[in-house]
Deep mutational scan, measured.
Amino acid sequence: MSIQHFRVALIPFFAAFCLPVFAHPETLVKVKDAEDQLGARVGYIELDLNSGKILESFRPEERFPMMSTFKVLLCGAVLSRVDAGQEQLGRRIHYSQNDLVEYSPVTEKHLTDGMTVRELCSAAITMSDNTAANLLLTTIGGPKELTAFLHNMGDHVTRLDRWEPELNEAIPNDERDTTMPAAMATTLRKLLTGELLTLASRQQLIDWMEADKVAGPLLRSALPAGWFIADKSGAGERGSRGIIAALGPDGKPSRIVVIYTTGSQATMDERNRQIAEIGASLIKHW
């Protein structure tokens, strides 16, 4: 067993022997301040990774656009098919120029040779490549099948209805392509620590998230040296922004954090800054 596999296998073990965790309302004060600064709703939840206990939450059962955070769930569904012998990570998928959609920095470079399922998941999570996500959605049967996968996990809230990039439209009061912070946090925890996926697939999923290259201005910008984070960000229309993450000190994750916002007129930089400040408060009061 590799060191990384050992780390993920012992996530519940280490967490069980940690000192009790206590909620700190100071972080919620910052979440509410972010709402004021952005002029928009902000949803927040913080779960203990081992027990699933909610440590703090704000608007945990209000719907927010998922945006690209759905790509972690998508690759979880792909990995479940791999575990069941219905898919192979090494299978190569070929596609054409007509398949390319807006923001496809990886797939646009491989029109000639195609990409493997493993490479597509890596591109979808680490670079948020939209064509990679659409190609992977095709392998599982489309958005409705991802929703069905989530329902089978016990998540009857999260739903995907459309493809990239239309799913980022974020129309107010439109339930399409949305989740709730509580539902997303619980589902992410199941994917990373539950028995739904094999140990190898859980490790692969967290490795992809740990290698995320496009979430630097968010929670990662607030992390002290030595902290662990595996995350996936999302951005959408109407001032929408979000991030889902597993993080913790001492090089291992111990909490799940989900943050979503929508309806702001603020710039992307300002949305990023507010999420980073929430992260800084979380870490300060850990």
Rank of each mutant, 00 (worst) to 15 (best):
S281P: 03
I140M: 07
E277P: 02
I54V: 15
G142A: 04
L188A: 07
A40R: 03
A185R: 00
A225L: 12
L197Y: 05
G251H: 15
T186G: 14
D155E: 04
V258I: 10
F17H: 09
D48H: 07
F149M: 11
D33P: 01
S57Y: 11
I243G: 01
L74D: 00
S201Q: 06
M1Y: 01
M180R: 12
P25A: 06
P172G: 10
A183W: 08
F14E: 02
L73A: 11
L191Q: 04
F17L: 09
G114N: 05
E237D: 13
L137T: 07
L47H: 03
G114W: 04
E237W: 10
S128I: 00
L223P: 02
C18L: 06
T138S: 14
V8I: 14
L146F: 11
E145T: 11
Q265M: 12
F22C: 14
D129R: 00
T179N: 00
C18S: 11
R255N: 02
L137N: 04
I256P: 00
W208A: 03
E56P: 01
I278A: 02
D207Q: 13
H94C: 08
L74Q: 02
K190V: 12
S51E: 13
I256A: 05
A266W: 06
V257M: 05
A84G: 14
Q265G: 15
E145V: 12
C121W: 00
D113R: 11
H285N: 14
R255A: 04
Q265L: 14
E277H: 08
E35D: 05
Y44S: 01
M184R: 00
D113E: 14
G39L: 11
R92K: 12
D83E: 10
S264P: 03
V257N: 01
D250S: 14
E166Q: 13
L218R: 02
N130T: 03
E108L: 09
W286F: 05
V157P: 02
S2E: 05
A183Q: 12
F17K: 07
S264E: 04
Q203W: 07
A182G: 13
Q265E: 14
V214D: 02
K32S: 12
L205A: 03
L74G: 02
M115F: 04
T112H: 14
R162A: 07
S68R: 00
D113T: 14
Q265P: 11
H5L: 09
S80H: 14
I278R: 00
E26G: 12
K284Y: 14
L19I: 15
L73K: 01
S281I: 14
G90K: 15
A211M: 10
S68Y: 00
L191H: 05
K144V: 12
V78H: 03
G76R: 00
R273T: 12
Y103H: 07
W286Q: 03
R159A: 06
T261V: 13
T138N: 15
L197C: 05
L146A: 06
Q4P: 08
I45Q: 05
T178C: 07
L188G: 04
L89S: 06
R176Y: 07
V82Q: 06
G85Y: 08
L223R: 05
D231Q: 05
D231A: 06
A200Y: 12
V72S: 06
